[in-house]
Amino acid sequence: MQQTFRTLSLAVALLCLGSTAALAQLKRFSIGPYIETGAPAGDFHDTHDVGWGGGVNADIKLIAGLGITGSVGYMHFGGKTTTITNPDSSPGKYTYPNVSAIPIRVGVKYHFFPLLYVKVEGGVANFTNTKYRDGAAAIFAPGIGIRILMIDVEAKYELWHKDGSSGFWGLKAGVNF
Rank of each mutant, 00 (worst) to 15 (best):
42 G>V: 01
44 F>Q: 07
43 D>V: 03
61 K>G: 09
41 A>C: 11
40 P>G: 06
55 G>P: 09
34 Y>H: 14
58 A>S: 14
57 N>W: 10
46 D>G: 07
47 T>F: 05
54 G>P: 08
41 A>R: 13
36 E>R: 15
47 T>M: 13
34 Y>N: 08
52 W>P: 00
36 E>G: 07
58 A>F: 13
43 D>F: 00
58 A>W: 13
39 A>N: 09
34 Y>T: 05
31 I>G: 12
54 G>M: 10
60 I>H: 08
45 H>R: 15
40 P>Y: 04
55 G>K: 12
42 G>M: 02
42 G>Q: 09
37 T>M: 11
48 H>S: 11
33 P>N: 05
37 T>L: 09
43 D>K: 14
50 V>I: 13
48 H>E: 03
59 D>S: 13
50 V>W: 07
60 I>V: 15
55 G>R: 12
42 G>L: 04
44 F>V: 05
54 G>R: 10
32 G>I: 01
52 W>H: 01
52 W>T: 01
49 D>M: 07
34 Y>M: 07
33 P>D: 07
40 P>R: 06
36 E>P: 00
48 H>D: 05
59 D>Q: 15
49 D>S: 14
58 A>R: 05
34 Y>I: 04
57 N>V: 04
49 D>W: 06
45 H>Y: 12
58 A>Y: 09
58 A>L: 12
57 N>S: 12
33 P>S: 06
37 T>W: 01
53 G>S: 14
52 W>S: 01
56 V>E: 07
38 G>H: 08
41 A>G: 04
61 K>Q: 11
44 F>P: 06
48 H>K: 00
51 G>P: 14
46 D>A: 14
50 V>A: 03
50 V>G: 01
44 F>L: 10
45 H>I: 00
42 G>R: 05
54 G>F: 12
55 G>H: 07
51 G>W: 11
45 H>M: 10
60 I>S: 05
32 G>S: 03
56 V>R: 10
48 H>G: 05
39 A>H: 07
38 G>A: 09
43 D>W: 00
45 H>S: 15
35 I>Y: 01
37 T>V: 11
31 I>R: 03
54 G>Q: 04
41 A>S: 15
39 A>V: 10
38 G>V: 01
33 P>E: 02
33 P>F: 10
